[in-house]
């Protein structure tokens, strides 16, 4: 069983929604990334989503764009990323998901990249620009290697398409909460809660449904937990903390913030 699946099973028995925390690898440095990861684990995050920067992140809003650019400017290469993952793996068995864009994989071939990622200790992949129509080769390679393929769905994804996406998804399904890019939103829309309900129905309990994009406060977490989300994904809010915190305090601040969010995940 994959680490991700095992985690969701454990949480189910504890009646808890998973808190998935995103940070950008190499932003602003490898050292701070490791500090932030320790903070996330300390604060009780269930799954860590590590971003690998891409030069053209079309699904990301200003905060994660900035983190991508900074990470690339500080010299983050794929080797550095895998080395960060290996370091985390020495300390923890927490499920690790890699979020990046299709070209990063395509460049080395899906099979080669995914096997390298697996070896380093990555459990699942999120590619926001990988449409289901184009995913055959990617999913095949991931299956072969035993890597979870986490697809995204949107509030406007139609029923038949949703079914098709669920078929190719493993680990969890990532429901994008808003029409828009990643980043902090001010309110939770009714269309999002409706979409969550529809997505959960389509998933039929076979695959957990996580909600992300614009989830940043305890209140947001609470609302999605009470609306039946199997996971909540918090990203830009973590990046903002890292941006505004001196390096030596990142671990503690991230831990405090994560703990507050995690406290709201029991249902």
């Amino acid at each position: 069983m994959s680490r991700i699946k095992e985690k969701f099973n454990q949480l189910k028995t504890k009646k808890e929604t998973a808190l998935i925390s995103y940070i950008m690898a190499g932003y602003p440095s490898e050292k701070t990334t490791l500090a932030a990861v320790r903070g996330l684990i300390q604060g009780g995050s269930d799954i860590i989503e590590l971003g690998f920067p891409f030069s053209d992140p079309i699904a990301d809003g200003p905060t994660i764009q900035m983190a991508s650019t900074e990470s690339l400017n500080s010299g983050t290469k794929i080797e550095n990323f895998f080395s960060i993952v290996k370091k985390i793996r020495k300390e923890s068995n927490i499920p690790l998901v890699l979020m990046t864009y299709t070209n990063i994989l395509y460049n080395q071939t899906y099979l080669k990249f995914i096997s390298r990622a697996k070896q380093a200790g990555i459990d699942g992949l999120i590619l926001p620009d990988m449409a289901i129509e184009e995913s055959k080769e990617y999913v095949k390679a991931a299956k072969k290697i035993g890597m979870d393929t986490i697809f995204l769905v949107s509030p406007n994804t139609e029923k038949d398409r949703l079914k098709q996406i669920i078929k190719s998804t493993s680990g969890f399904l990532y429901m994008v909460a808003v029409f828009g890019t990643t980043g902090v939103q001010t309110k939770i829309h009714k269309y999002t809660l409706d979409a969550l309900k529809n997505t959960k129905n389509a998933a039929k309990g076979k695959i957990p449904v996580g909600v992300g994009f614009g989830v940043s406060t305890e209140k947001d977490v609470q609302k999605y937990v009470s609306s039946g989300a199997d996971a909540v994904i918090v990203g830009s809010a973590n990046i903002k903390i890292i941006e505004n915190t001196p390096a030596n305090k990142v671990q503690a601040r991230i831990a405090t913030f994560t703990k507050k969010l995690k406290n709201r995940t029991r249902y």
């Binding site: 926001p128 620009d129 449409a131 129509e133 184009e134 995204l152 949107s154 994804t157 996406i165």
Partner: peptide, 19 residues
């Protein structure tokens, strides 16, 4: 066919744009 000129093209897009 399938938006492909030989192996090139396709539609690698965020899901929100699919509809």
């Amino acid at each position: 066919k399938d938006g492909r000129f030989g192996e090139f093209g396709g539609k690698y897009i965020p899901e929100t744009l699919a509809p």
